[in-house]
Simulated scan of single mutants.
Amino acid sequence: MKDSAQDRTVTVVIYAFLLLAALVVAYPLLFVLSASVSEPQMVNSGQVVLLPAGFNLEGYREILDYAPIWRGYANTIVYTVVGTLINLAVTLSAAYALSRRETEGRNVIAFLFALTMFFSGGLIPTYLLVTELGLRNSMWALILPGAASMYNIIICRTYFASSIPYELYESAKTDGASDFRMFVGIALPLSAPIVAVMALFYGVGHWNQFFSALIYLNDDAKYPLQLVLRTLLLQQQSSGSLNDSVEALTDFTRRSRLADMMKYGLVIVAAAPLLIVYPFLQRFFVKGMLVGAIKS
């Protein structure tokens, strides 16, 4: 059957809308990438729209020559990997238990969990608790307080309950499988999409960790990447005084120019690993979110 004129019009409108949405999402990233290799004066004057102007890699050289950057990368990778593994262990096991009909009091437990989505102790009590537990100035202060998210537990519970036939559990139980065996041997292998989604959610959160690190960490050697980048940018933007010598003002002008170049490069340096990983998880991300959020 040939499409009618109305169908073709609707198709054109849909594709035009999708193209516009893609441009809205992609343009900021392309602009930041172009600005990171352009002269700051040209960026500030609006000459950089899409393509670089006055190609210059000085900002990247300054960033990559800064030794704490690599230490921050290593710290962030450790925090992200360890934190994500702990998040997945807590979230998936809790979601599995709440999805099983045999779990006594699961509705009450789910209700108590859900309360934490609306009420919390606040920043100061949390800080005091972390300090009393001896976690301050360690990576555990960035990982354990947020080890589980009730929102993610609900999504995983919905996925387990709606995507895995209950008869499969009954058959495995008849064959003598324990709850742990059913969780590891049945639930997890059949839940690759939702596991990938949760890993991406938690991984991005740990990679962008900033505020908690700013509060709980005192040792520069333990700073994650985001905090190192902030420190570097603040150092480059330190202000000068009108009473300074000509040499000092010249140096301040140079550092201000360099800071303008670096701020776009810092965005690329911090976001590049996530941009590289996401395409490999995209198909799991879409499927997991649809099944985990829509089915009931």
Rank of each mutant, 00 (worst) to 15 (best):
V108W: 09
V108S: 12
V108G: 08
V108L: 15
I109H: 02
I109S: 11
A110P: 01
A110S: 12
F111P: 04
F111H: 03
L112C: 13
F113Y: 15
F113E: 09
L115V: 08
L115W: 06
L115H: 01
T116P: 02
T116N: 12
T116K: 05
T116A: 11
M117E: 04
M117A: 07
F118H: 03
F118I: 14
F119W: 12
S120L: 07
S120F: 11
G121R: 06
G122Y: 03
G122L: 03
I124T: 12
P125E: 10
P125S: 05
P125Q: 05
P125G: 09
T126M: 12
Y127G: 08
L128Q: 12
V130N: 01
V130R: 00
V130M: 06
V130F: 01
V130I: 14
E132F: 04
L133R: 04
L133T: 04
G134T: 04
L135N: 04
L135I: 07
R136M: 14
N137S: 07
N137E: 00
S138C: 03
S138R: 00
M139Q: 13
W140E: 10
A141M: 06
L142T: 00
I143N: 06
L144F: 08
L144W: 01
L144D: 00
P145M: 07
A147V: 08
A147Q: 06
A148Y: 13
A148T: 13
M150R: 02
M150Y: 03
M150Q: 14
Y151Q: 12
I153Q: 08
I153G: 02
I153C: 11
I154C: 05
I154P: 03
I154L: 13
I154M: 14
I154K: 04
I155G: 00
I155E: 05
I155M: 09
C156S: 15
C156F: 01
R157V: 06
T158F: 01
A161Y: 04
S162G: 08
S162E: 14
S162H: 05
S163P: 02
P165K: 09
Y166I: 14
Y166S: 15
L168W: 10
L168F: 09
Y169I: 13
Y169S: 03
E170K: 11
S171N: 12
S171Q: 15
K173A: 15
K173D: 12
T174S: 13
T174Y: 10
T174D: 13
D175V: 07
G176S: 11
G176C: 10
G176D: 06
A177H: 02
S178G: 10
D179V: 11
F180S: 12
F180P: 00
F180W: 15
R181G: 10
R181E: 12
M182S: 15
M182Q: 14
F183E: 10
F183L: 02
V184Q: 11
G185D: 07
G185W: 06
G185E: 01
A187Q: 09
A187Y: 07
L188M: 15
L188W: 05
P189S: 08
L190R: 09
S191V: 06
S191T: 10
S191N: 07
A192D: 09
P193D: 02
I194V: 15
A196W: 05
V197N: 02
V197Y: 00
M198N: 15
M198L: 15
A199V: 00
A199E: 05
A199T: 10
L200N: 01
F201E: 03
Y202A: 13
Y202C: 09
